[in-house]
Structures are given as structure tokens and as C-alpha cells.
Computed example of a mutant assay.
Amino acid sequence: MLTVYVLWLACQVAWTWELHKPVPWQQHCSAACQCMDDGRVVICSHSRLSRVPSDLPATTKTLDMDDNQLGALRNTSFIGLSNLEVVSVQHNGIQFLETGVFLRLSRLREVRLGGNHLTRLPRNVFRRNRNLQVLDLHGNTFVTLPDVAMFRQHNLLVLNMSSNHVTSSVLGPAFRFTTQLTSLDLE
């Protein structure tokens, strides 16, 4: 009888452990965010964050940080997130981007910076982002097109500059590299 009880107890412990054992990527998801798809999609929108959380899964491919209070994106904002393909930081009051903010993100395909307070982009901000296909800068305060940031952006397909204060639609010399550009919105 004691043997049956010990066996039953061992099964209960094993079953409870299996039921509650931690999933590795969930252990690394910030409390302010929601991680989905094994940590590949992370949503931190509407969380009143003033910086990108440092405890996001390294597996993150899509990061939604819309409607927070970032103010600026620094070179340290995306450390440990080298798998990022999509970054959305719309409506964050961003006024400043450090030149190397996207430097370590060689897989980056889409950047959404709409609805912020940007007036310019640093010269080499997308220097290593050769896979960039979509750049959304709508609703900022640009008065000219971000010519120097377009240097060597051969794969850029979409550039949304709508709802800015652009006074001239003249494409500067760096735009000669945007040979795949199919959509330029200047509305």
C-alpha cells in the first residue's frame, strides 16, 4: 500500500511540474509586454514606457512599441535583439535618433517611426540595414526628404512621408540608390 501511495505521489509531482514548468522565452518577456509566437512577436504598446525594455526575448522578430513615451532612440535601445525584422515605435514623442540605433539590426525590413517629432534622420542611421523595405515617417515634422539616410537603400520599396511639412519633393543624390522604390507618399 505504501508503494502505491509513493508511486501516486511521484506521478502527482511530475504532472504538476509538467503543467507549470516555465517556457524559456516567457521567462525573458518584460512584464510590460506581451510575447507571442514563441517570443518572435513582442507587443509593448500603450504601456507608458520611456525606454525599450532590456529584458525582451532574443528571438524577437517583430517589436511593437507604439503609443509609449520613448522621446529618443539610443544606440543601446535594441541591444540583444539582433533578430529584429520589424520595429514599430509610432506615437512616442521621439525627437531624436542616435546614429547607431539600428546598427546591429542587419535583418531589419520595416521601420515605423510615424507620429513622432522627428525633423531629420542621422546620416548613417540605416547604414547596415541593407534589407530595409518599408520606412514609415508619416506625421513627423520633416521639411525636407531624408536624402542622406537613403544612401545604399537598394531594397527600399515604400517610403511614407505623408503629413509632414515637406516643402519640396526634390529627391537628393542619395535617392539614386533606392532603385526598388515603388511607393513614395508625400501627401
Score class of each variant (00 low, 15 high):
35 C>D: 03
91 H>D: 15
165 H>P: 08
144 T>P: 15
18 E>L: 10
159 L>G: 06
134 V>Y: 08
20 H>Y: 11
82 S>G: 08
143 V>H: 15
124 N>V: 12
100 G>N: 05
170 V>A: 14
112 R>N: 14
71 G>L: 00
151 F>I: 04
47 S>G: 06
85 E>L: 01
160 N>T: 12
98 E>Q: 13
104 R>I: 10
80 G>P: 00
108 L>T: 04
44 C>T: 02
129 N>P: 02
62 T>S: 14
30 S>Y: 02
83 N>C: 03
62 T>Q: 14
62 T>D: 10
77 S>R: 07
163 S>Q: 11
66 D>F: 14
51 R>P: 09
73 L>M: 10
149 A>F: 07
42 V>H: 07
130 R>K: 12
145 L>D: 04
185 D>S: 06
113 L>Y: 13
8 W>K: 12
109 R>G: 07
51 R>G: 15
63 L>F: 02
173 P>I: 13
3 T>G: 14
76 T>N: 09
143 V>K: 14
49 L>P: 00
48 R>S: 10
59 T>Q: 04
102 F>V: 03
151 F>A: 13
114 G>K: 02
125 V>Y: 05
73 L>V: 09
123 R>W: 07
182 T>V: 12
83 N>P: 05
176 R>L: 05
162 S>M: 05
178 T>K: 11
94 I>S: 03
73 L>W: 02
60 T>D: 02
186 L>G: 04
183 S>H: 12
67 D>N: 09
135 L>Q: 09
77 S>Q: 07
116 N>M: 13
75 N>I: 10
70 L>A: 05
125 V>M: 09
96 F>Y: 15
85 E>P: 10
61 K>H: 07
23 V>E: 02
49 L>R: 01
151 F>V: 10
81 L>C: 03
90 Q>A: 06
10 A>V: 05
58 A>Y: 02
17 W>C: 10
59 T>C: 04
172 G>N: 11
25 W>T: 06
120 R>A: 15
82 S>Y: 15
